[in-house]
């Protein structure tokens, strides 16, 4: 396993937010994690990114124990629901930000950023400031800024939560394309059922701090706790003539 999480526990005061979290993920795969608000998804991602210290448990990345490593040494990028583009930097400089931190030579930075701008379909926007872009374009820049640093693991915390349905769909397609192109290993947290099924190679459900990873998507769909059955029943009642896919 590329990522191994073993018995991670985290409490805030009296409340246990993450309970005995254990799972694994192969390299270049995406694990979708579905869960309602406040179930501990964000805390779990922040623990993996080194932004929150767990009370107990271990995290191994590519066989190496990373419990004591600082966030900047983990090569794990955490992407928020908000795009968090730096308002004082142009689109080009936002994408180049991680490379500039590593003091990469200027020519190399320029070549990589130009390539990324092309992959993100943002040609001609490089000199603009973040406030001049649409929500979808901003989120694309945010992806580019993270992926260009070639992270070992990408943590996405409801990245399309603030986008409209059409933009959301286009962004889902773009992410699938980028994930394949740059061979990304990622955890994709969402509270949207359809998005969880679409985006993940594997799928998991988080409830009150406990994570259940399903062996396949069918297992996830059949589990009444995930809400998929309710969704199917709803659409079945609305369109009585249609056949139940399961």
């Amino acid at each position: 396993m590329f990522l191994e999480v073993k018995n991670v526990v985290k409490s805030f005061q009296q409340e246990q937010v993450v309970k005995d979290l254990s799972f694994g993920l192969e390299a270049h795969k995406t694990l979708s994690i579905l869960g309602k608000s406040g179930c501990g998804k964000t805390t779990m991602l922040k623990i993996l990114g080194g932004l929150v210290k767990p009370d107990s448990g271990h995290i191994l990345l590519n066989g190496n124990l990373i419990d004591e490593q600082s966030p900047s040494d983990r090569h794990i990028v955490y992407l928020y629901q908000e795009d968090l583009l730096f308002p004082h930097l142009t689109i080009f400089e936002n994408i180049a930000f991680g490379l500039r931190l590593k003091k990469m030579p200027r020519e190399e930075v320029n070549a990589k950023v130009e390539n990324m701008v092309h992959s993100l379909e943002l040609e001609g926007q490089e000199t603009k400031m973040p406030h001049q872009l649409s929500g979808g374009q901003r989120q694309r820049v945010s992806f580019g800024r993270a992926i260009i640093t070639n992270p070992s693991l990408l943590l996405l915390d409801e990245p399309f939560g603030s986008l409209d349905t059409g933009t959301r769909q286009r962004m889902q397609e773009l992410f699938k394309k980028l994930a394949a192109e740059f061979r990304i290993t990622s955890l994709f947290v969402t509270h949207d059922l359809k998005e969880a099924i679409l985006m993940g190679d594997e799928i998991a459900y988080m409830r009150s701090g406990q994570l259940t990873v399903y062996p396949d998507k069918e297992g996830f769909i059949r589990d009444p706790a995930t809400g998929v059955q309710d969704e199917i029943a709803f659409w079945g009642e609305l369109l009585p003539g249609s056949s139940n896919p399961l």
Partner: peptide, 29 residues
Amino acid sequence: RTKSFEELVFTLGGTRRQAFVKVLLPLAR
């Protein structure tokens, strides 16, 4: 939001000093 900016810099490989110089000071200018 400011805290998230700082954390983002850390996960992108930046140090506390880089977060201050490259992000927080320009934001607070």
